[in-house]
């Protein structure tokens, strides 16, 4: 009984030290959690790409780079990779072009409009991305889709336009679904900006347009970089939108990972693709951040 109490006391003592001492202590629970439920599975998944798996039995002794080299040599892989990259980049650029004006108008608007913009931005996140993707299928779908039926009724077209199952529909869907992740960091940065800079620019004779491009845009670069990296990462790795809005023949790297692991059950191939998808995604995000830091070297300087 006594030993039991001592044990409990010492556990509390350790916890108390972790919480009260500050420093790295308070992060430890999160690190432990992430280690077991994020880092470990990721390592295991990636490891699957470098060993041979026979009917669900992993042979840990057969470490080789065979799966990796055969995948990289495959021109189909590069074809699919290019599509992932291209779709991700284009939809991210669209998100930026559409999101920036919204965030900018937010900072000029009165309190009521601001709340409205914020609600309109965030509320789509309350429904699942899957549901929103299906909604796009209803809107864009064949003869009886919303858009086509309206155009047909107005006699603007003779035959339904093939919106669905194309680059267009994938990029449209992705842009809409990922827009909030672009708008929110932009709002954060733009609404914290110093308004006297704009007045200074006007005072020095610049027009509002020049002020916007020479002052406001450069000042908001941290938000642009954050939004760009975030939206690129989730667009590049999104597999629901390409699968549903791109159709059966439309495939990206992320879709391939899903198919190989869940449908075809070729874990080796799936794991290698996942490994390549993740490492390339990381490199792109790091690259974007590097470019961002280079463009914002004025922010880092010290006396």
């Amino acid at each position: 009984m006594n030993a039991h109490n001592n044990l409990i006391d010492s556990i509390f003592e350790i916890l108390r030290n972790i919480i009260l001492r500050g420093g790295i202590g308070p992060v430890i629970p999160a690190i432990i959690f992430l280690f077991f439920f994020f880092a470990m599975p990721l390592v295991v998944l990636c490891a699957f790409g470098f060993v041979s798996i026979d009917r669900g039995v992993v042979d840990w002794t057969s470490i080789s780079l065979d799966h990796l080299t055969s995948t990289i040599k495959d021109s189909l892989f590069w074809h699919i990779w290019w599509r992932s990259f291209w779709v991700g980049t284009v939809s991210t650029i669209f998100c930026l072009c559409l999101g920036y004006p919204v965030a900018y108008i937010y900072t000029l608007a009165g309190r009521g409009w601001q709340i409205l913009i914020l609600v309109a931005t965030i509320s789509p996140l309350l429904t699942s991305a899957l549901v929103r993707t299906y909604a796009w299928m209803v809107i864009l779908g064949g003869r009886r889709g919303v858009v086509n039926s309206i155009l047909l009724d107005l006699d603007l077209i003779d035959r339904p336009i093939r919106f669905l199952y194309s680059d267009f529909s994938v990029i449209l869907g992705m842009t809409q679904i990922h827009l909030p992740f672009m708008i929110l960091p932009l709002i954060t940065v733009l609404s914290a900006r110093d308004l006297s800079l704009e007045q200074a620019s006007l005072n020095l004779g610049a027009s509002r347009l020049i002020t916007f491009f020479k002052i406001i845009v450069p000042i908001s670069l941290p938000g642009v970089i954050a939004g760009f990296a975030l939206v690129f990462a989730i667009s590049y790795t999104n597999f629901i939108v390409p699968q549903l809005l791109g159709g059966g023949n439309y495939t990206t790297l992320a879709v391939q990972v899903y198919e190989f692991i869940v449908v075809i059950l070729d874990w080796n191939k799936g794991a290698i693709l996942a490994f390549l998808l993740l490492t390339s995604c990381f490199s792109f995000v790091l690259g974007i951040n590097y470019l961002g830091n280079w463009a914002m070297k004025w922010k880092e300087v010290t006396r």
Binding site: D194, S196, L197, Q199, A200, S201, L202, N203, L204, G205, A206, S207, R208, I215, P218, I219, L221, M296, W298, K299
Partner: peptide
């Protein structure tokens, strides 16, 4: 006359220097 057409010098309280230039 709008502020960008007046050619009146203004020094702000926080100087409002453009940080990126």
């Amino acid at each position: 006359v709008p502020c960008n057409k007046r050619n009146v010098g203004f020094v702000f309280q926080n100087y409002a220097l453009f940080p990126h230039l």
